[in-house]
Amino acid sequence: MLSAIAVMALGALVLGAALGYASIRFKVEGDPLVDKIDACLPQTQCGQCGFAGCHPYAEAIAKGEADINQCPPGGEEGIRRLADLLGREFKPLSADHGVEKPKAVALIDEQTCIGCTLCIQACPVDAIVGAAKQMHTVVESLCTGCELCLPPCPVECISMEPIAEDIATWKWKYPVTAIRPAAATPLHPSPAQAA
């Protein structure tokens, strides 16, 4: 009886020591949670979540101050990714923070632009080039579609243009499994049908 207890105790001690040593020796310096959350966010820096950019929102999520469904540009997929990362339940996008829209870029109407530079200052990613009293223009590839340039424009010359699909950005669709061969849905719906 006693010897059995002693053996068990000794075993516990040895294993405990081994585990303790391993936890120190092989300590994994993981990515801090905030960075991982930040990596799931779309980096539009639009502030629709109520924070001053994606990183502050990530910090707030990590601290538990914000929910995971406040990012309209990230959309449903972004929420799913966050839910996966944080082991939480998926929830639909909070309506208070906006709706998921198709990706768009800002377009400045060159005839109307007065060159006030307000949009340049508002742009979080420096995607607008131009100078005071010169026409401004949006560098399309840098624009994240955050819409932050819309409110400051005094002449309302900025509009959001949805990014149209072209041959270079076109994607093969998920194969439609026709269990019954009849269902003849077009594989590539025309824009009119899709709209």
Partner: peptide, 8 residues
């Protein structure tokens, strides 16, 4: 137009 992908 039929909507089958290759191979045919």
């Amino acid at each position: 137009m039929i909507d089958q992908p290759a191979p045919y």
